[in-house]
Design a binder for these strands. Sequence first.
DNA 1: CTTGTCATGTAAGAGGTTACATGATTCG
DNA 2: CGAATCATGTAACCTCTTACATGACAAG
Lengths: 186, 186
Amino acid sequence: MDIQHAILGILSWQPLSGYDLKKIISESDLFYWSGNNNQIYYSLVELHKAELITQEIQHQESLPTKKKYTITEKGRAELRKWTLANPDLPELRNNFLIQLAWADQLSQPEMDDLLGRYEDEIEIQLRMRQARQQAGYQNNASDGTARAKFFWKKIFENILAAYQHELDWIREVRRELRDVNFPDEI
Amino acid sequence: MDIQHAILGILSWQPLSGYDLKKIISESDLFYWSGNNNQIYYSLVELHKAELITQEIQHQESLPTKKKYTITEKGRAELRKWTLANPDLPELRNNFLIQLAWADQLSQPEMDDLLGRYEDEIEIQLRMRQARQQAGYQNNASDGTARAKFFWKKIFENILAAYQHELDWIREVRRELRDVNFPDEI
DNA sequence: CTTGTCATGTAAGAGGTTACATGATTCG
DNA sequence: CGAATCATGTAACCTCTTACATGACAAG
C-alpha cells in the first residue's frame, strides 16, 4: 500500500486536480498522510508516466491554470489488482505507551497531569472525527451501491472505535490509579 | 518521541551493547521499530556525543569486542524531562481500511477471501503477542515497584486490546456480510 | 559443511515532512 | 490592508528500511 494507489482510488471516483487531492487527503481521517505537495504532485507525475491517469490542462479566467487528472482503463485494472492484494497489517505505533514505560519516575501529581493531557488529546481527536462524520463530510460513497455504503460505514466505525477504545483505556488506567494505593508511591 | 529516547530509556534499566539493544527492540511489541543497525548504532553515537551515555569497550576471549553503553546523570535528567513532555497521539494507520474503500468492485468470493486473509493475519499477530506475554518475555519491570508493574501491565493490555478489537471488528464485518443480502451484490 | 549467534559498522534508497516560492483574486 | 483560497512546483531534511560487509566460533 502506498499513496499512489490511494490517489488512483480517489481518481476512480472522479477526475480531480492535484490541489483537490491535497485537500481531500489532508482533511481525511482515512487517508492518513499529511497531504503535502511534494508527495502528491510527484505521485501524479509518476502515475501519468505509467499511463494509469491522463492529464488535461484547464485554463480558467481569473484563477490559476489547473491540471485535471482522469483514471485510465489501465489505471482501473491496476486499482482492482491492488484491491485484491494481500492486506497489510495495521501500524500500531503508540509513543505514549513508550513514554509510560518510564513514568514510574514521576510523582503522583506529575503522573496525573500527564495522563490527563493524553486523555484530553484523545477525546479531542474522537470528538473531531465524530463531528466530521455526522456532517457526512467524508461520505464519498453516498452515490455507491448498498454494499459500498456498508463498507464505508464499517471503515469509519473502525476509525472511531480505535479512538473510543483508547479513551476508555486511559480512563480506566486513571480510575485504577486513583482507587489503588500503591505502597511505593512517590 | 524518537528512538533515541527509547534507547536511553532501555539503558536506564541496565547497561547494554548495541547488539543487545537491537535484539530487545526487534523482538519487542512496545518498541515498534525494526531494530535495524543503522538506526541503533547511529543513535548510540549521537547519545554519546550528547554525553547522555558513556561507552565502555569490553574485550572478550573467543568473541568479538563489544561496546557497553551506560546512561549518565545527564541522560537520566533528559529521560525524566522527556517522560513529562506532551504526549504524542497514537499513529492509527490502517492500509486495509483504504483497500476496503474500493473493495466494492470485487465479487463476493473475492471479497470473502480478502476479508478472511485479513482476519487470519490479525489473529496470528494477536496469538503471537499473547504467547509472548504469557511467557513473561517482555516484563522488564518485574523487578520494579508495584506502580511500575501496574503501568507495565496496562501497556501490554493496551497492545493486546488493539489487536483484539481489530479482530472483533473484522469478524463482525464478515458476519454482517453473510447475514445481509445486498440487492446489488456482484 | 552450512546455518546461527555474537558484534560492529556502512550504503543506498523509500517514504514522508516542513517550509519556501510565485501570483492572482476574494473576503472581511 | 492583511489574510485566505486557488493552484503548481521545488528544496532540504528526517526517519526508517533492506541489504551489504566482515569475521570468529558453535551446533546440528
